[in-house]
Design a protein around this nucleic acid. Structure first.
Length: 491
RNA sequence: GGCCCCAUCGUCUAAAGGUUAGGACACAUCUCUUUCAAGGAUGCGAUAGGGGUUCAAUUCCCCUUGGGGCCGCCA
């Protein structure tokens, strides 16, 4: 896989024209994993040549998203590197230089066709069911004609002279050989009329100058590859390896878009996903090991990742599985980290208005850890611990509190719990006391457990009853049982 | 319209000519249990269709069908 003793250098080259898309970041992840696996370098390059759509906000979203997922880059924005600058808009003179070289070598030429003219011709071609490619009419412009156009104030772009015959072959690392007829390709634009380069041009120059060894990208770029290869050859550059990985699709088989759910990495962050679960899930969308392992530590993932393990067909994004995986990871993370991650959600829900000891909060969250699928689940899972007045769930009331024996059970339990020492208000003792009580009252354990659970938490589901009571504390438990007793009369 | 890519359970995938076609998510049932989860067990469920090649095709080849991509002074 690694050519000779050459260092592996891969890159992720997003354009800052929107949020960080889940599909892009999956490609970034593969590049990152490939670099780490091969002890190579991972470069981040910003392709900001679309002056109209590029924004700083988008740049920040990219950097933030990458860092959140742990995809730190070895060269690129904010850290620099030996092959910079890493923003294409700061490399314009480089592109100009190579464009001039190509023109001088008669491999490129100036084209004076206006965008309007091109659009009209394109429409016409589509209407007549012809391929909408540029007809190359400016290839053989006379000097006089050029001068005339200039005088008219026409701007020009620089176009590449695509060879009219021959074949261009890709040896794709994941797909094998792919062949294109040069004749189907047209004279594509290298430099726009404002002097900025077009993707195919800037990309080739930068990848070459930055000594990228492997280009790992989405398979939507397969069709661009022959153009780029021809350019590499025209410029006398050494060809990198290509690896086109499948795209991510939505449930309907189409391109993943907003109507399928969240597509921005930041949104997964906000919705309470852990970076490690998103990373793990994304890695598995298009890559797998032969034993179909599902959960990988970062080290394991780096060790086992390979392009051979990448599939060829598009993968449908399955939010359900991501949720499952997030639950798996939440159950495993350190409780202090879980508390830290939970706090913003609790604050937002208004559950931390009164001061609470860190240790108490930690105990509360620990009791619900195994149940959480998303960090954002926290508020509704723990609210009854933090609220003064517990709201009774209607179904719980009907199902549990309206039974005849409940009044008696609560009365007896209230007395016994009152008699219990503060320091004996521990899960173990509470369980013994409750079970003994049930036996004395000639009731099944559940007939005693359930009413207490509902009166103390307002609902039928929750953590272990006695752990929950211990964390709640004697005072709160008694207040709530008394209140239930009071309200029970009206039920 | 031209060119290119892809095709195994609903979904992610394994099986690099010979397997009762395996695993994971989801779903269902059972189990554990004070509840809900988690866990354990079991079940449901696939090689798109048609031709070849071969003693043998999920696997190799061709066609069809279906899906996707590119054909911008976007990337």
């Amino acid at each position: 896989m690694v050519r000779n003793n050459m260092t592996v250098r891969v890159r992720f080259a997003p354009s800052p024209t929107g949020f960080l898309h889940i599909g892009s970041v999956r490609t970034a992840l593969y590049n990152w994993l490939f670099a780490r696996h091969n002890k190579g370098r991972f470069i981040l390059r910003i392709e900001d040549t679309d002056e109209v759509r590029s924004t700083d906000e988008s740049l920040n979203a990219i950097l933030e998203g990458m860092r959140w997922l742990g995809l730190e880059w070895d060269e690129g924005p904010e850290i620099g590197g030996d092959y910079g600058p890493y923003f294409q808009m700061q490399r314009l003179d480089i592109y100009t230089k190579y464009a001039e070289q190509l023109i001088k070598e008669d491999k490129a030429y100036c084209c004076y066709c206006t965008p309007e003219e091109l659009a009209t011709r394109r429409e016409e071609a589509v209407k007549q069911k012809r391929p909408p490619k540029y007809d190359g009419r400016c290839r053989k412009l006379t000097e006089d004609k050029k001068k005339e156009y200039e005088k008219q104030g026409r701007k020009h772009v620089v176009r590449f002279k695509m060879p009219a015959s021959g074949k261009t072959k890709i040896n794709d690392l994941v797909r094998g050989a792919i062949e294109f007829d040069n004749a189907v390709l047209d004279d594509f634009v290298l430099l726009k009329s404002n002097g900025t380069p077009i993707y195919n041009f800037a990309n080739v120059i930068d990848d070459s100058l930055m000594q990228i060894s492997h280009i790992i990208r989405g398979d939507d770029h397969i069709s661009n590859t022959p153009r780029q290869i021809v350019l590499y050859e025209a410029l006398g550059f050494k060809l990198p390896e290509f690896a086109h990985v499948p795209m991510i699709h939505g449930a309907d088989g189409g391109r993943l878009s907003k109507r399928h759910g969240a597509t921005a990495v930041s949104q997964y962050h906000e919705e309470g996903y852990l970076p490690e679960s998103l990373r793990n899930y994304l890695a598995l969308l298009g890559w797998s090991t032969s034993d179909s392992q599902q959960i990988f530590s970062l080290e394991e993932m780096i060790e086992k990742f390979s392009l051979d393990g990448c599939g060829k067909s598009a993968a449908v994004f399955d939010a359900q599985k991501l949720v499952w995986m997030n639950g798996e990871y939440i159950r495993k993370i350190d409780i202090d980290r879980l508390v830290e991650l939970s706090v913003p959600y609790l604050e937002k829900a208004g559950l931390l208005k009164r001061p609470i000891r860190y240790e108490s909060l930690k105990k509360i969250i620990a009791l619900e850890q195994e149940k959480m699928k998303l960090i954002s689940d926290v508020p509704k899972l723990v609210d009854f611990f933090l609220l003064d007045d517990v709201e009774f769930d209607e179904k719980a009331v009907n199902k549990v509190l309206k039974k005849d024996h409940v009044l008696n059970v609560l009365e007896v339990m209230k007395e016994r719990l009152t008699d219990l020492n503060d320091k004996d208000f521990k899960a173990e003792q509470l369980e013994k006391l409750t079970r003994d009580t049930a036996e004395e009252l000639n009731l099944k354990a559940g007939q005693v457990f359930h009413p207490i659970r509902v009166s103390v938490s307002g609902r039928t589901t929750g953590p272990g009853l006695f752990e929950m009571m211990e964390v709640l504390g004697k005072e709160k438990v008694l207040v709530r049982i008394e209140r239930t007793l009071r309200e029970k009369v009206n039920l």
